[in-house]
């Protein structure tokens, strides 16, 4: 479960997040939408314990950030548009390396299972720098899942992927969600977000301006909801 209250993040004089309230239940798949510069990546970096909040309270599974960051990190997987993988190591070595950082034992079975799950079992001994962008992103998901996290954070995971790679990624994400893991994904791809998520939050100018469950979307779909949310950010943000 993720609980964020009145989160403010400032970089010098620039305020990026202006009092974000955000709540995610266990097992929800939340798509965090918003225009460029809205603060989505900053928000996700704070949830991932990679950045500190200026003000406000962030709790993940009851653990407070940044005070209990180590406990949060043990339960968190992160996928960003960068793969966070070493090009000069093989797929297997990358997973094994991250597994060791998470203090996992008996890595052989876990690594094989994950490589099969992301469809890279046959490329396990190939260097990651020889992989396509799509394959790297699939392996990045394997890396994020190595320690079986309760919460998965995805920062624009479809960026730079072709159609086939996007579909393969979506299949893996549906599989992750089906296993009851909480997922928060930022995206500019509304069609994919609508297809995957169970709830949609719109972040604009540092505040959540709208939030709706998949069942509560207007008949016109997510695009209509998104445009409507961006039209009146101040009023909804204040509310």
């Amino acid at each position: 479960m993720i609980e964020v209250r009145r989160l403010v993040k400032r970089f010098g004089l620039k305020t990026v997040l202006r009092g974000v309230d955000f709540h995610v239940e266990q097992g929800e798949f939340v798509a965090l939408l918003g225009p460029n510069g809205a603060g989505k990546t900053t928000f996700l970096r704070i949830l991932a314990s990679l950045a500190r909040p200026t003000l406000g309270e962030v709790r993940i599974n009851g653990y407070l950030l940044p005070q209990q960051a180590a406990a949060v990190r043990q339960r968190l997987g992160v996928v960003s548009h960068l793969p966070l993988l070493y090009g000069d190591l093989t797929a297997e070595e990358n997973l094994r390396f991250y597994g060791r950082l998470y203090g996992l034992d008996g890595l052989d079975g876990r690594v094989s299972e994950l490589l099969a799950r992301v469809g890279l079992a046959e490329r396990r001994r190939d260097l990651v720098r020889t992989f396509s962008r799509g394959m790297q992103q699939r392996l990045a998901i394997g890396r994020a899942l190595i320690h079986q996290p309760d919460v998965l954070l995805l920062d624009e995971p479809h960026t730079g992927l072709d159609q086939d790679a996007c579909e393969m990624l979506d299949t893996i994400l549906r599989d992750v969600a089906a296993q009851g893991q909480t997922v928060v994904m930022t995206s500019h791809d509304l069609a994919r977000a609508e297809d995957l998520a169970t709830r949609f939050d719109v972040l604009s100018r540092g505040v959540i301006v709208a939030s709706a469950a998949a069942q509560a979307l207007p008949p016109e779909g997510l695009l209509s909801f998104y445009r409507q949310a961006l039209r009146a950010p101040a009023q909804k943000g204040a509310a």
């Binding site: 314990s49 990679l50 180590a70 990190r73 992160v78 960068l82 966070l84 993988l85 950082l101």
Partner: peptide, 13 residues
């Protein structure tokens, strides 16, 4: 360059 520093910092170490 490939974001690996974040990968290291995300680990509970």
């Amino acid at each position: 360059d490939r974001g690996c520093l974040d990968g290291l910092l995300l680990a509970p170490v």
